Amino acid sequence: MPQNSAAVLPAPYADLVVRDADYTAPAAGELVIRNRAVAVNPLDEIKQSTGDLMYKWLPHPAVLGEDVAGDVVEIGPGVTGFHVGDRVVAYAVGMEKGRNHTAEGGFQLYSVVEAQLTARIPDDLAFEDVVVLPLAISTAASALFQKDQLGLDHPTAGGHHPAPRQSVLVWGGSTSVGSNAIQLAVAAGYRVVTTASPHNHDRMRALGAEHVVDYRSPSAVSDLLTLLDDQTVAGIFAVGTGSAEPCLTIAIATGARRLCLASPSVSMSTLPRRRSLLALSRFGLQMASRVAPLMVRSRLRGIRTRFVWGSSLMTNEVGPMLWNDFLPKALADRSYVTAPRAEVVGTGLQSIQPALDAVREGASATKFVVLL
């Protein structure tokens, strides 16, 4: 049996500790992969920094991590389409409710993953490049295509679409989620308008965005309204802290009926990495003062506004559509770009904690990756 190790969160607010871990065989519908690269996400850092504010159901010690890429080493009953030795990328869901929180975490050498959330990758695609995708692309797909979110048409790998008849606004295009939302919306046949810092504008156009606006510009909202004038706006996806309010204004002005939110209105990075009732109370009051008026305004205007959770595609048709049908083909024919850019910050499980520290410091159009 393979010898497993994991970077474990031993207690709230603690640093990760590398220790031996059990190897778990796959159940029906599952695979075990030997991770060759993992990426870190703000959710991992938030869980470490805020204790039980998020993922209250996750016990300690905990194995965090959602983005994994590596080789298939064992296949569970009923799984088809995969073979031992396949190179894959997968969305590890051990942090979610009702999962095996230890075996299905990403920050370890061997992870159990759902076959329906796993995609084969080409031999010449580096693990460190493709591992930036799982949580980001899953969140973007859930927002764009789930019927209870924007409900857009599904994408086609390498497909050729007629001239787009409808537009989608993605506020926050240079984020991990935004970069994937742009590509998915374009692959589904929509015209995409997005926002980003000026130094990322060319990168956004390369991903398929037709127009890019500087989100920090005082005229950002009016500029976007000009670009969307006389367009049918199929939906608006707000990514990033502070994006909800301007996106709602645009939805009202353009007649868009659906607005999806990926980020809270107040950044959790403002919370100290320790237990502080005062800081939590202040954060809660700020959230309530921002979210409640937003939701009331949305309802009064007849706009369906909802937050998205990346793992929700596990329970509907969007998961298999994305991971089993679209992504393997799109990666194989190079019609899909692995974005954002991967920055390798170390090798070995001991490098994951410095990567989390780097996430807390912030990054633009970059995801931090550790090789295993």
Rank of each mutant, 00 (worst) to 15 (best):
M268N: 05
R258M: 01
L248M: 14
T254L: 11
R273C: 09
E245C: 10
P246Y: 07
P246L: 09
R275S: 07
R257T: 14
S269L: 13
R275P: 00
R274K: 14
V266N: 05
L271Q: 06
I252P: 03
L271D: 06
R274G: 09
R258N: 02
L261Y: 01
R273V: 09
L259H: 00
T249K: 15
P272M: 09
T270A: 13
S276H: 07
L248V: 11
A253H: 11
C260V: 13
A262N: 05
A262C: 08
A253G: 07
L248S: 06
S267Q: 02
S269T: 13
T254G: 07
C247M: 13
L261W: 01
R258Q: 00
A251C: 14
R274H: 14
E245I: 11
C260A: 09
L271R: 11
A256H: 07
P264H: 01
A262I: 07
A253I: 01
T254I: 10
L277K: 09
T249E: 15
I250K: 01
A256N: 09
R275W: 10
P264K: 00
T249A: 15
C247G: 11
I250W: 02
P246K: 14
E245S: 15
V266G: 03
P264L: 10
S276T: 01
S267Y: 04
L277N: 14
A262E: 02
L261K: 00
S269N: 12
R258K: 12
A256R: 08
A251F: 03
C260Q: 00
A251M: 12
R273L: 06
P272R: 09
M268A: 11
L277T: 12
L259I: 06
M268K: 05
L259C: 03
